[in-house]
Amino acid sequence: MNDTGPEAMNDTGPGPTRTERELQDALEALAGGVRPTRPLPDAYRTARGEWLRRERRRRLVLAVLVAVVFALATLIGLWVLNQAPAHPGVIFSGTGDAVNGASLPRPNP
């Protein structure tokens, strides 16, 4: 392989080094000994059941979270509204010249 550094090379030439060849053999041998503990259809069925269960749980948690946030927001809103003073607040008194329709004195130009 050309992309490895010269310090990794045991022998010269463009082909794989001895370590690379040995590594490939060792990896092949180790991988060849790996067998799933369950046959493939069973493994798929088990995994699919687990996906569905986790997905249902995720959606349930999400729905509960949304409901809790909504309920909290509603309660806080009601509490804030309940804190407002009971007597009507005066926005415009309706007294003075405005009652008679007179306008405010204008500054001279």
Binding site: D3, N10, E20
Partner: peptide, 8 residues
């Protein structure tokens, strides 16, 4: 490269 060097 570093991995191969260490293995070598």
């Amino acid at each position: 490269s570093r991995g191969l060097a260490a293995l070598t």
